[in-house]
Simulated scan of single mutants.
Amino acid sequence: MDLVSLIGTVLAFLVIVLGTILKGSSLESLWNPAAFLIVFAGTLAALMVQTSGKVLRRAGQILPQVYRPQRHEPQGLIRQIIGWSEISRRQGLLGLEPQLDEQRDSFTRKGLQLLIDGGEPDAIRSVLDVELGTREQSDLDAAKVFENAGTYSPTLGIIGAVMGLMAVMQNLADPSKLGHGIAAAFVATIYGIGLANLLMLPIAARLKSLIHKQSEMREILIEGLVSIAAGDNPRQIESKLQGYLP
C-alpha cells in the first residue's frame, strides 16, 4: 500500500470539506444530485465516446496501482539476472528451467523461456522489444483516460453551473430562492474542477510515472537475458546492467 498516495487522496477531500466549513457554509451545500449527475456521468459519457471499451477496461485494471504499485527494485532484478547467469554457466541454459515456476510476471517468464529455448541474442531482443513497446503503449493509453477525464470534467462543471443559473433565472420573482439557487449552481463547478485537479490529473501523472519505471525494469531484464544468451560472464553483465541505474 502506497500511504503517500492514499493520504494525498484523503487530504484532497478534507481540503474541500474543511474549506467549505471555514468559509461559513454547511456540508449539505456541497451535495447536489443534479450537479453530480452532470459532472460525473457526463465525464464518463465523454470518455465512452472517445475511448474504446478495451482501453477503458485496462484503465480500470491499472487504477489500483496508484495505491498498490508494483515494487520496482532494479538492484534486486540485477542480482537475480546475475544468479541466472551463474546457473547457466554451471549447468547450461536448461538449468534455468526451475526458475520459470518462480516468476509471476508474464513478461519475465516469456523472456526466460526464450533464453532456455536457446534463442539467439538478436531474436530474444527483437521479440521482447516488440512486447515491451506494445505493453507500454497499452498502459499509457489507459493512463490517458484519466488525463482526458481531467480535461472534460471542468467544462462539464461550467455547463452544470450555467444550467443551475438558468433555473435561478426562472425564479427571479421569488427572492427567497435566489441565494440557495445560486449556491447550488456553483457546486457543479466545484465538482468539475475538484475532480480534475485533485483526482484525475494526479492519478494520470502517477500512472505514467509507474509505467515508465516498469519499462525501465523490463529494459534491464531484456539486456540481461540477451547478455546471458551471448555468453557474457556474470561480472560483465553486472557492470553493463549497473549502467541503467542513476
Rank of each mutant, 00 (worst) to 15 (best):
D2V: 04
D2M: 05
L3K: 04
S5D: 09
L6P: 00
I7N: 11
G8V: 02
T9H: 06
T9P: 04
A12G: 14
F13Q: 07
F13W: 14
L14M: 14
V17F: 15
L18T: 14
G19H: 11
T20Q: 06
T20G: 06
I21N: 01
S26K: 14
S26M: 06
S26G: 13
L27N: 11
E28D: 10
E28T: 12
N32T: 01
N32Q: 08
A34H: 05
F36V: 09
F36D: 07
I38E: 00
V39A: 10
G42T: 04
T43R: 05
L44C: 10
L44D: 03
A46S: 13
A46V: 13
A46E: 07
Q50D: 12
T51I: 11
K54V: 08
V55E: 06
R57F: 08
R58A: 12
R58D: 09
A59N: 07
Q61S: 13
I62V: 10
L63S: 08
Q65I: 02
Q70V: 02
Q70P: 01
G76E: 10
G76S: 12
L77N: 02
R79D: 08
I82M: 07
I82F: 06
W84P: 02
W84S: 01
W84H: 01
S88I: 06
S88G: 06
R89I: 13
R90H: 09
Q91A: 14
L93C: 09
G95F: 10
Q99Y: 14
Q99R: 14
D101G: 15
E102N: 15
E102L: 15
R104F: 07
G111N: 05
G111K: 01
L112E: 05
Q113S: 15
Q113D: 08
I116S: 06
P121F: 10
I124S: 03
R125F: 00
S126L: 14
E131M: 09
E136W: 00
Q137E: 12
Q137P: 00
S138F: 01
D139E: 13
L140S: 04
A143I: 10
E147P: 00
N148M: 14
N148D: 12
G150Y: 02
Y152S: 11
G157Y: 03
G157F: 10
A161Q: 09
V162F: 08
V162H: 05
M163L: 15
L165D: 04
M166H: 13
A167N: 12
M169K: 03
N171R: 05
L172H: 03
A173K: 02
P175A: 05
P175M: 07
G181K: 01
A184Q: 05
A185S: 10
F186Q: 08
F186Y: 09
A188G: 07
A188R: 02
A188S: 11
G194S: 15
G194M: 06
L195T: 10
L198T: 11
P202T: 11
I203P: 00
I203A: 05
R206V: 02
H212E: 12
H212T: 11
K213G: 05
S215M: 07
E216H: 12
R218Y: 06
E219K: 08
E219C: 09
I220A: 05
V226S: 04
G231S: 07
D232M: 12
N233M: 15
N233F: 14
R235I: 15
Q236E: 11
S239M: 10
L241H: 02
G243D: 06
Y244R: 03
